[in-house]
Design a protein around this nucleic acid. Structure first.
Lengths: 203, 203
DNA sequence: GTCTATAAGAAGATAGAC
DNA sequence: GTCTATCTTCTTATAGAC
């Protein structure tokens, strides 16, 4: 029963639903199952709880980036892997990734909180852009670059190609964040998108 | 000196920067140049101000949709127009559209406020999806459908084609909303995107 | 319609008992 | 570490003069 930990979980959940300004310390305490004053034995203020969440986000993000960034040979291996995928396998992979982003508890709350708070905190803005723009495009662009070099894809700008693959997925993700009942529809579009991307760019 | 009107403007500005919960009535009054109590002669509560903004959003949205939705013959004219565009003209058009969405005062505040408040209000969620997903894709899909029929574009699913054109623009827009200093970079990517889209899909 | 004064209540935070 | 009681400050909103 790590209360200090549970406070962060509950707070992130509430912040991701309502935003920092609409969440009251008493609500966080309720969620944890304690009274508001007890909360101040663990964190010195509401802002302090928010900072702790940020700190955890930073840590997770750094871990993820170091995990996903390649040392050349792994990168090569990855592009071999993707190059050999059949269209159906590629669709399955894309849908799996989409499903993870949409339903992973932490990923989902994290993204919603960033969405709500992005304009009131420059660091959050950067964190958001890194996680949902810079890094995905860098990674997918690198992958596509290798696939182009291997003659698996057409010789087009790999950054734009990555944008054409990723941006639709991102757009569909934001729709589902906002209107979860549209997930089935989004998945159908996603599948068509991946197949059409494959048709258009595959050499 | 329409105070009632100015209250809405100031409130929308503040709501779009901080979100409803972090904006206090006194701040709105400050922006208008009156004291908080005077504000209650115009609106009966803070929530009432928010509702008035929503009402205006609904009106503008409805006007825009009826303006953009076509009666068939106009639609035909539009696809003729777009079909005859040179690549450079298409790029110019795309950049102009992007610039409008990014810098039009109302459009910009409206979008940011929706971004912040989308998860706490189902109507806002729908309004957002309509304005930045359903309608653009419907419009552009219709246009592309005509262009395909005229043999100007490849025979691919026009909805997915529209997604491939629009989603990158939307993604770049969100980046600039968050980090305005990246506008120049975004414009360069946008230009490359449009040219590559053109290369790939044009018959 | 705007002001000053103020009520009413909410929300963040602390004190001190257990 | 959690609780009850309480303080302080902030925030919304109203009353009533001008």
């Amino acid at each position: 029963m790590d209360t200090k930990r549970k406070i962060l979980d509950v707070a992130l959940t509430l912040f991701s639903e309502k935003g920092y300004g609409k969440v009251f310390v008493g609500q966080i305490a309720d969620g944890v199952g304690i009274k508001a004053p007890s909360l101040y034995k663990h964190y010195k203020s509401k802002q302090d709880i928010f900072e702790a969440i940020l700190e955890e986000m930073r840590n997770r993000y750094n871990k993820e980036v170091s995990f996903l960034s390649f040392n050349g040979s792994d990168f090569q291996a990855d592009s071999d892997f993707f190059g050999k995928l059949s269209e159906d396998e590629l669709v399955k992979l894309g849908i799996g990734l989409f499903h993870f982003f949409l339903h992973d508890e932490y990923e989902c709350k994290f993204r919603k909180m960033l969405t709500i708070e992005q304009f009131s905190n420059k660091e959050l803005a950067e964190l958001f852009s890194n996680q949902y723009f810079n890094e995905p495009l860098k990674y997918q662009g690198g992958l596509l670059r290798m696939m182009i070099a291997q003659g698996q894809m057409k010789k087009e700008d790999e950054q734009i190609m990555a944008l054409h693959f990723y941006a639709p997925m991102y757009l569909l993700l934001t729709v589902c964040d906002r209107e979860p009942q549209r997930e089935a529809e989004a998945l159908q579009v996603l599948e068509k998108h991946i197949k059409q991307f494959n048709r258009i760019y595959k050499e």
